[in-house]
Design a protein around this nucleic acid. Sequence first.
DNA 1: ACTAATTTAGTACTTGGTACTAGAATGTGG
DNA 2: CCACATTCTAGTACCAAGTACTAAATTAGT
Lengths: 184, 184
Amino acid sequence: MRLSKKMRQSRLVQSFQENPFLTDEEVAKQCQVSIQTIRLDRMELGIPEMRERLKHMAEKSFDEVRSLSPEEVIGEVVSLELDQSGVSVLEISEDHVFERNQIARGHYLFAQANSLAVAIVNADLVLTRSAAIRFVRPVKLGEKCIAHAKVVQKQPSRFQVDVETKVLDDMVFQGVFDVYRATN
Amino acid sequence: MRLSKKMRQSRLVQSFQENPFLTDEEVAKQCQVSIQTIRLDRMELGIPEMRERLKHMAEKSFDEVRSLSPEEVIGEVVSLELDQSGVSVLEISEDHVFERNQIARGHYLFAQANSLAVAIVNADLVLTRSAAIRFVRPVKLGEKCIAHAKVVQKQPSRFQVDVETKVLDDMVFQGVFDVYRATN
DNA sequence: ACTAATTTAGTACTTGGTACTAGAATGTGG
DNA sequence: CCACATTCTAGTACCAAGTACTAAATTAGT
């Protein structure tokens, strides 16, 4: 036996958790068992098939986008008007701060802004070419960062996206992103 | 004719925009045309099939901020001469890339560089004030990014740190960080 | 009326599955 | 060691929602 059933199943749960895009075939290969075994496992564990998982996620994010009223949304949600503007909210948790002083590491604010700048552009493969950013003031544990992004220049495959992140009415981060639609 | 082609197509674009979960069959029924017509329309308009649409949405929401939690240290610092220079290595793993195309998300490269720029400065509390960065070329899954940082300007409480990240001899990222020693 | 554009029909094939049956391999208890 | 149970594998038929392609029918425009 390669791995006990229980072992495999708990590994499986985790795998799907951290990458819901996996097909049974891929997991089967990873676990060195047949595809049927994986399917039996999914049945037992009540894990739906990949397409259902994705559909579920899509639904979730879709609903969220629909019902976005900035003050009630907590977490990592984004509202998007493709090629125009978007909003994302990030609440600073333990994971985001320097232990020593409870101040958010800059790259989390950057990540929020960068993700948003990329998400806003309506194309398959969008990458950041360059950015100029400013951390206006430190952000502390527990603060809720609301990033507003706006496309300010649109060329066939290049976009300039400005992002401003605020905590309440306090500007904390400012960035100008030059993103492009890549051909891959 | 029920509706002109153009009419139908623009209606179609809107339909899919406001409900990406629609199948061709459903839309065909709505428009009173055959399923093939809808498919031709999708081809012409470059609208992907339903499953792809959902996958795409799932990816966007998934990519969002999950990215932000796991690692305490981004990249491994392999050498450090305080207030002078440092090197850190980051190997791009599954966790760092867009599922779709295996290209690293920009904010990981940024995080590596930012962490290094902050680590290099010999003080208790160091924060980034601003940065100008350039993603020179996309980085793919499995590539090992080596970031070299150098302090190029030193004032009592302000430092300018230049970071260059390479894969082998290939420059992939460049950044100028303005960091400061905070009093807190 | 004739040609071009548009629409429909139909076939073969693909992905990532479900549902089900049956046999093989491996354990485990007596 | 045998018997039975658990676990795993294999294989078939089928489905949804497509792609890719060919060909015919319909409609529009002039």
